[in-house]
Design a protein around this nucleic acid. Structure first.
Lengths: 221, 221
DNA sequence: GCAAAAGTGTTCTGGATACACCCATGA
DNA sequence: TCATGGGTGTATCCAGAACACTTTTGC
């Protein structure tokens, strides 16, 4: 071992920036304007600089695409290094990250972007008809699965909502992520210890208003 | 983006080679004979060559340390790139892998090695008194946690045993990984669909012999 | 009053937990 | 025949699934 000085490889960070919009899980995609895969849809990514930490590169990428830097759920997913990517002569290892962002937060910052970005329905983009750049389709499938699994045994779903939310809103998030409908009463029991009433109310339509909740202090981990 | 040609980084694979021995979860460690951390215990690792895939580098490392190449449970864990490792001027990103190997398999091949290798008790090596090279202590802690979690919702524990095993042996593996005792009858119910009787028996001491099982065909996923 | 969605109480059930017991072996 | 550990049946408990019902709003 320890021949590190000589064997150097290009390292990239590719980013799954996820949000929920129109009752669908969506991921931010950009259109490539360079070869290879010119014109194809791709995940946003950056090259990791020589003196840069991985998480710094990740945050840099996130900021470039969304303008957001703080209070965002961020998770490393997997490192893809078994394919010959981009220029065949140029081996690249790619570390994939995932960020979950409430739709409301994106609305503000995303308009200012120059480059074209689209939030694509994850289910749709994973269908046969789409050809994505590199192994990005696999990455998205991997990320979707990770979210789905974590929804079952963590509180990851909360990151798709702002600090304050109603229980019907929260339940909808869970239903989208799990891909099935839940019973209202049961869902509420399952999260009752994790949320606390703010005392505020939210009126929406011609029906009873819903209470506004936030995450309970003890369960922010 | 796409400045990949210029920004190159040394990439390493570090390996958690795990087994269960003497009723303890153990990990293979080597003693470094080079600076930095000369003399300290470290996980085995290799530098990823420019034209080498990640999983190839991982298998190369595994073979170097154990002589084993096939039928081994292998899993990528996490990519560590937020520290300044080794020579401070020389940035290294390290992809950690984990292999689970039945003790019986190691017995054969491990003797042939030149370098000193030790299987260390994971609990012990994570204790205060040990100082390991680089961020290897974190890696081990991370791997132990991953195994523990996966033991609860997958059949990962089976990889610590050979093809054929008795249920008391299997239960012992689970107890070690979960860190708690299990009720015999309950444990057997929980795995009854995953195993099948081979018809063979195993005699050990002055007591009733145990049936020998294997994993059921349908549950090898 | 009525539709619509918010919010709550109660039963049912399957799986995990805990305990009790029987069985086969060597000495 | 006894100690030892392998092997099995059953009562209990609890979380989640399913269902039924009440409440509050706009029109």
């Amino acid at each position: 071992m320890d021949a590190f000085r000589h064997e150097k490889i290009a390292v990239a960070v590719d980013f799954l920036i996820m949000t929920i919009e129109d009752d669908k899980l969506k991921v931010l995609m950009v259109r490539r304007n360079e070869e290879p895969f010119k014109g194809a849809l791709a995940l946003p990514g950056v090259a990791v600089a020589e003196e840069e930490t991985l998480s710094h590169a990740a945050r840099r990428c996130l900021e470039e695409e969304t303008g957001i830097t703080e209070n965002i759920y961020l998770e490393q997913l997997y490192t893809w290094g078994d394919d010959c990517r981009r220029d065949p002569r140029n081996r690249v290892i790619s570390v994939s990250y995932m960020a979950l962002i409430p739709r409301e937060l994106l609305a503000e910052s995303i308009g200012k972007r120059v480059t074209e970005v689209l939030f694509m329905d994850v289910t749709e983009i994973l269908s046969e008809q789409y050809k994505l750049a590199f192994d990005h389709k696999e990455m998205i499938a991997y990320g979707r699965e990770r979210i789905q699994n974590k929804t079952e045994y963590t509180t990851i779903a909360f990151h798709f909502l702002p600090e304050e939310f109603t229980l019907p809103e929260l339940q909808k998030i869970y239903e989208i992520l799990l891909g099935k409908n839940l019973f209202k009463a049961n869902f509420r029991k399952s999260i009752q210890d994790i949320v606390e009433d703010t005392g505020k109310m939210k009126k929406v339509g011609a029906h009873r208003p819903s209470k506004i909740y936030r995450r309970a202090e003890d369960f922010k981990g």
